[in-house]
């Protein structure tokens, strides 16, 4: 797999020999190495249970929350070993969006956007707050839809709006990387299309890593694609190349729908 790292020049994220196991015997992710290119959308594909979400959650060290999960290997963010950073700082630099929209139900739309600041105990001036809220909501094309109802609870929005609110919440800290874990799997086609368009826009300013079980989605919006199978990274390259001419037979079988 080492040649794959070389493929990516000056990566934002660099994953080296990463393995994750939920219990001693069974490994969920096995020795994955890959670089993630700045200002691009990288998709992680594979059948369910292949370890794609596990890999994604290793990047911002979400596994640290669960004592039974063991992670080995290194991840570098802008050349810095993430193991040396506090998880608090790391997660502030790497935003995350989850499968199901999860705005904080007890907070207003306004407070949801700046939840990161509130949670981190950072006090902002009122004007700064408003600036951040407006900027972040404009970034996710939600501002015009909610600007008159910022004090309403975030859970009043539609599913698609909620997911864009969650993306805005992740953007408010200006992270280097945004991780998305099947962000559209709970959304209808119209809302999905909106989120996809949004991600295409966002890659100007952010590096995006997205797990998806939807091959067509990966083909539509990603620049690079990884294919994982049984915990291993089977193939990694430019999306165009992979979809037209996969190298590994397992990738080909997956892309042609032989298994899912």
């Amino acid at each position: 797999m080492s040649e794959l790292i070389k493929q990516i020049s000056d990566p934002v994220l660099e994953i080296r020999d990463l393995s994750v196991s939920y219990n001693k015997d069974k490994s969920a992710v096995t020795a994955v190495s890959a670089g993630i290119k700045k200002n691009r959308v990288t998709a992680i594909m594979g059948p369910s249970g292949c370890g794609k979400s596990t890999l994604l959650r290793a990047i911002n060290r979400m596994h640290d929350l669960y004592p039974n999960v063991e992670t080995v290997g290194d991840i570098f963010l802008n050349g810095e070993d993430t193991a040396d950073m506090s998880t608090m700082m790391l997660r502030r630099k790497i935003g995350m969006v989850f499968q199901r929209p999860n705005p904080f139900p007890t907070m207003s739309i306004h407070d949801n956007v700046i939840a990161g600041y509130k949670l981190n105990g950072i006090r902002l001036q009122k004007s700064d707050k408003n600036d951040i809220v407006e900027k972040s909501l404009r970034d996710v094309a939600l501002w015009d839809e909610v600007k008159d109802s910022l004090i309403k609870k975030g859970t009043f929005l539609s599913g698609g709006q909620q997911q864009r609110l969650c993306i805005a919440r992740a953007l408010a800290f200006k992270p280097d990387v945004i991780l998305l874990d099947e962000p559209t799997s709970a959304l209808d086609p119209v809302a999905t299309k909106k989120v996809e368009e949004l991600l295409m826009q966002l890659k100007k300013d952010y590096t995006i890593v997205m797990v998806t079980h939807n091959m067509a989605q990966a083909a539509r919006i990603s620049d690079f694609s990884m294919f994982m199978y049984l915990g291993e990274l089977i193939e990694y390259g430019k999306t165009k190349d992979m979809f037209i001419k996969p190298i590994d037979t397992r990738t080909e079988e997956y892309l042609t729908g032989k298994f899912s």
Binding site: T87, M88, M89, G95, M96, F98, F104, N120, R169, A170
Partner: peptide, 9 residues
């Protein structure tokens, strides 16, 4: 997890 992902303790 959403709160942890924003860097909260």
């Amino acid at each position: 997890e959403a709160a942890y992902s924003l860097g909260a303790t």
